[in-house]
Design a protein around this nucleic acid. Sequence first.
RNA 1: CGGAAAAUAGUUCAGUUUGGUAGAGCGCCUGGUUUGGGACCAGGAUGUCGCAGGUUCAAAUCCUGCUUUUCCGACCA
Length: 560
Amino acid sequence: MKASQMYINTLRDVPKEAEIDSHILLLRSGMIKKMVSGVYNYMPLGLKVLKKIEDIIREELDKVGCEEILCSALQPKELWVESGRWAKYGPELMRLKDRHDSEFCLGPTHEEVFTSIVKDYVRSYKDLPLTLYQIQTKYRDEMRPRFGLMRGREFIMKDAYSFDKDEDGLNKTYDLMYKAYSNIFDRLGLNYTVVLADTGAIGGSLSHQFMALSNIGESVIIYNDNYAADQEKAESLPEIEHSLEDLGEIEEVYTPNISTIDELSSFLNVPKKKIVKALVLKNYQTKEIFVCLLRGDRELNRIKLVNFLGANEFDIDFASDEDIEKINSNKGYTGPLELNHVRIFADKEVPSIKNSIVGSNKSDYHLKNVNFGRDYTCEVLDLRLAVKGDKDIVKGEPLNEERGIEVGQIFKLGTKYSGSMKANYIGIDGKEKPIIMGCYGIGVSRTLQAIVEQNHDERGIIFPSNLAPYLYAIVPVKYKDEMKDLSDQIYSLLESKSLSTILDDRDKSIGQKASDMELLGVPYIIIVGRDAKEGKVEFKDRYNNTTEIISKEELLKRIK
RNA sequence: CGGAAAAUAGUUCAGUUUGGUAGAGCGCCUGGUUUGGGACCAGGAUGUCGCAGGUUCAAAUCCUGCUUUUCCGACCA
């Protein structure tokens, strides 16, 4: 295509809304344009790339027997009430009313819709298995939209839902989808890793996330050769203290205005590992209050607590100062002894801490030599956030930490939706059974940004050749005389081979034209300049950052 | 939703402290000179200074309220 006819809206300045490279480049290249916070319009070049990503996804899913449909983003409240998620999903669900005051939501995901479609269709085990998917715009009223397409309030997602007659079938489908996802992300050229994941609001028994590795990623991956999980999910071996220390008598120590672990550790000159941290949390739905005990140097993994309680994630939060007083404690001085009306949980590491320091529940005092079992006891479970340096639960080897962008996630749902929505089938034994489901998402627009994040340099985007909006750009230094002739020749040759090409015929300086093509992510740039008389051009390869002067014939050989 | 910052031309920003004619670079238009990395010269167009109130002879500037945006935390594809 000729550049003079194209929408090429490149920006020289960095738009002030953007912070990270991929966001800046997507805006500067004119691929996307923001409408309001977290909502973007896709401009021609951006849409081209997006479509290429979508096509790869379609090809790989179709290959494993999925079929594409397209559902409405607008969903009636009734479906969500049926699955129980109208109440459970929280403020992130974009809710709206029509003129009759009927309630709707804009779908953040489509388990309900797909389940209701399939429930109408499937009568017998002979109709199963079945996997349907769609590529569609989703909505989520994010608290904080961020980083452009990375976390928008509107985003494009591929969501697939599988329907099987039994666990065995689900396992097979899940494995197929796992493989299809690997093929997709391989073909997209992403540097990614697959991790075990929490099932979150969607629910289910097993889940993997596909993470594009990047230091701007919002997820933390805990991994080594034996184990890889999202930090929310990650388990590690508890560090058990094997000390021969004798148990001391409980002693009160005066610790005025010392309410954090850091202060306490230096004030008493004891390692943080000797201190038991007590966090007071509340389920704001049920008004229940919990105290979580952790070793002083550890962080609480709230997801683990939420999952154990079977609560809604957004209902669990730190308790207020008044709540803390209600359980007979004092902010900054909470400890496991003499608490009222509260469930206490200890992380697995806590019982082995000998002669620990704990809060006394009254201001300005802590207790020394407090021992689990002798002085108090409570439910023990895995509550701590796994971090780098912990030992994995498979072979006990040290774990690493890395950041990742979550581009895909697959879930074994089981009967979570088919159960509540009564999506049943008649089995071979004539009995009615719930369909066994799986669901599989890919954040398509986010993936676009992840690709940009992983494929750029200081000059611009360097798209993989199968994703580039255009593979070649012909940039005449001046679009006239022999430069024009040679450019036109090369252009029609490339076009005749169906190689996507931009001919930059704009009346702009060479610097501007070349910079634009580099910014847009065109991998091969052919500059037609002073050597045009001899039929030679400059061939620039953005992948290995080389430029060569070659003849037209040599060029044709290269492009095959 | 907590904490912080910001909102002025298409865009990036100055001007606000100390109230008094609306500014610059880039971009855009016209003409010319240029043409190997966002070139130069001359001329030109472009504003609800986020919105609404208030103070004042006078408000981009001071006061109040609101809205929007960005960043940091808590949430997720």
